[in-house]
Simulated scan of single mutants.
Amino acid sequence: MENPDAAHLRKVEVCLSPALFPVYYSNKNCVVVVIDVFRATSAIVTAFDNGIKEIIPVSSIEEAKEYKEKGYFVGAERKGEIIEGFDFGNSPFSYMQDQLKGQTVVLTTTNGTKALNRAKAADRVIVGSFLNLTAVINYLREQKKDVLLLCAGWRDRFNMEDTLFAGAVVEGLIEDPLFGNLADSATASMHLYQVAKDDLNEYLKNTSHRRRLARLNLEKDIAYCLQRDISSNVPELVGNALTVK
Rank of each mutant, 00 (worst) to 15 (best):
D5K: 09
L9E: 01
K11G: 00
Y25W: 02
K28R: 08
V31S: 09
V32G: 06
I35C: 01
T41H: 11
A47Q: 12
A47P: 11
I55R: 02
E63Y: 10
K65D: 06
E66Y: 05
Y67L: 03
R78L: 15
F86K: 10
F88K: 15
S94D: 13
Q99S: 05
G102H: 04
Q103E: 11
T109H: 09
G112L: 15
R118I: 09
A122W: 03
R124I: 15
I126P: 01
F130T: 07
L131N: 02
N132R: 02
T134R: 11
L140G: 00
Q143T: 05
K145F: 04
V147M: 05
V147H: 02
L148N: 01
L150Q: 02
W154Q: 14
D156G: 01
D156P: 00
M160V: 14
M160Q: 15
V169D: 01
E171G: 03
L178F: 07
G180I: 06
D184G: 03
D184T: 06
D184N: 07
T187K: 12
S189H: 10
S189F: 06
Y193A: 09
K197P: 07
N201T: 13
K205H: 13
T207C: 14
L216H: 04
L216G: 03
L216F: 06
E219H: 08
C225I: 11
R228S: 15
R228K: 15
S232E: 15
S232H: 14
V234T: 11
P235F: 15
V238D: 11
A241W: 08
K245H: 09
